[in-house]
């Protein structure tokens, strides 16, 4: 079981990585827990609102190009070979 995670913009800056592979994670929540364990508090601050503990509005997570908000949110199941992309919202120009 292996999942590819792609970081963009400020997430790339905080992790210092453009892409990592994570073994043995079965849900988006589990994946984020592992990522926070690996990359620390700064990543946690970027992902979660400290007051509510919920994922910030400024975080977009796609699994194979589909937003997790339209699936099971943080409970979205992951399968072997999935690609998870994490970035801030697109806007402006």
């Amino acid at each position: 079981m292996m999942v590819t995670v792609k970081f963009f913009a400020n997430f790339r800056e905080v992790t210092g990585q453009a892409q990592v592979t994570m073994p043995n994670v079965s849900s988006v929540r589990g994946l984020l827990d592992e990522l926070v364990r690996e990359f620390g508090q700064r990543l946690s601050d970027l992902l979660y609102d400290p007051q509510t503990g919920e994922l910030r509005d400024t975080v977009i997570i796609l699994v194979n190009g589909r937003a997790i908000t339209l699936m099971e949110g943080l409970g979205t199941w992951l399968e072997d070979g999935d690609t998870v992309a994490i970035f801030p919202p697109v806007s402006g120009g």
């Binding site: 963009f8 913009a9 977009i60 190009g65 992309a85 801030p88 806007s91 402006g92």
Partner: peptide, 19 residues
């Protein structure tokens, strides 16, 4: 923050990832 740090060019990789 995104406007201040990378500016709107940050959209390039995000939109690429969205296809």
């Amino acid at each position: 923050e995104k406007y201040r740090v990378e500016g709107t060019p940050t959209n390039v990789l995000s939109l690429n990832a969205h296809g």
